[in-house]
Computed example of a mutant assay.
Amino acid sequence: MLPSSQDLNENDAPAETARRVKTLVVAYDDPAARPGERDLAVEMPVNIVYGSVPYAVMMTTPADLVDFAYGFSLTEGIVASAGEIRDVTVEIADGGLRLLVNLAPGRLREHLARKRAISGRTGCGVCGIDDLSALPMAEARVDGAGSVGIAAIERALTTLGEAQVLNRRTRAVHAAAWANLDGSLFVVREDVGRHNGLDKLIGALMRERIDPATGFLVITSRCSFEMVEKAASLGASILVAISAPTSLAIDRARLHGMTLCAIARSDTLTVFHGRERLILAPSL
């Protein structure tokens, strides 16, 4: 069974993640509507607070929130490691949820001294920046992890669908997964927001002290530059996306020395950078 942050914090999911609603199904060639039911993914505002100072409000699926707090804190540049977060408390608030992130004293002082210029720096794309120089860029931490075989990537892609529990119910959420180098899935996180899903996954890996050299990332969403930057923040060297990348995503993958594969389907995948880490044929 894939590990869940529910095992780490019993108060991590104080709200439902999917909601069943009644529907009417109408076919174009049949005027008679028939009743039905559909599971919808729950989207909820979550206020992230450091110390007593609100930082951002993100729209997210209300599950694995402690993981989200860790991953968001790393990819926003608030912390550099899991040890700089003492604990995370999830609170129910009017109209949503609140994540109270207790930072180590030194890190909190540095955070409060730093002027926050934008809202949701990597969490919501590039909204809020006022200059191109403000585009987020992770430190180049990718250092050439071990190679991965095409068969391992195929295995991860094949099993990912079954591991997407919430998406099977709703068909409306993104997934981010960490696969071991043999292609077996270690952990999967889902969210209505593709950035949030990856932040949750990164948070889970941080909390488990997973070495980025021991596996690779798989995402079901399109691969924009923000997703590459988040992967680079973790130190991951291999990113596989089911959808297509953007041109800036490829530029950033080259900058960080990251292997980027995308348009990954059941029969083929396209390598955009970092061919040297891929084993394209079985060893003889």
Results as ranks from 00 to 15, higher is better:
154 E>F: 13
54 P>M: 02
4 S>E: 13
124 C>S: 14
49 V>E: 11
130 D>E: 13
267 D>P: 07
8 L>C: 11
274 G>H: 05
38 R>K: 13
242 I>L: 07
162 E>G: 10
195 H>N: 08
256 H>Q: 10
19 R>A: 04
124 C>P: 00
205 L>Y: 00
236 A>H: 02
83 G>H: 14
84 E>D: 13
274 G>P: 05
95 G>C: 07
39 D>F: 14
191 D>N: 10
86 R>N: 14
18 A>E: 03
7 D>E: 15
121 R>H: 03
95 G>P: 04
17 T>F: 13
26 V>E: 11
58 M>R: 09
235 G>C: 06
282 P>N: 13
130 D>P: 00
186 F>D: 12
147 S>H: 03
221 S>A: 15
226 E>W: 08
225 F>T: 02
50 Y>P: 09
244 A>H: 05
118 I>W: 11
8 L>I: 13
15 A>I: 09
153 I>P: 04
125 G>Y: 04
193 G>S: 14
151 A>Q: 07
154 E>H: 15
228 V>G: 07
255 L>S: 11
134 A>L: 00
97 L>V: 00
257 G>K: 09
83 G>M: 11
28 Y>P: 07
160 L>P: 02
184 S>D: 13
143 D>F: 07
240 V>A: 03
230 K>P: 01
201 L>S: 04
278 L>P: 04
276 E>K: 03
273 H>G: 05
117 A>V: 02
222 R>H: 07
137 M>W: 06
175 A>S: 12
115 K>T: 01
88 V>Q: 02
31 P>N: 12
260 L>W: 07
122 T>S: 11
63 A>G: 10
257 G>R: 07
236 A>P: 01
21 V>Y: 13
231 A>T: 11
214 T>Y: 06
29 D>H: 15
176 A>V: 08
95 G>M: 06
63 A>M: 10
91 E>Y: 08
160 L>C: 12
51 G>S: 05
9 N>Q: 13
59 M>V: 03
65 L>K: 05
150 I>H: 08
75 T>K: 01
164 Q>W: 00
4 S>I: 03
188 V>Y: 09
136 P>G: 00
246 T>D: 03
16 E>G: 12
245 P>M: 09
96 G>D: 01
247 S>A: 10
50 Y>E: 04
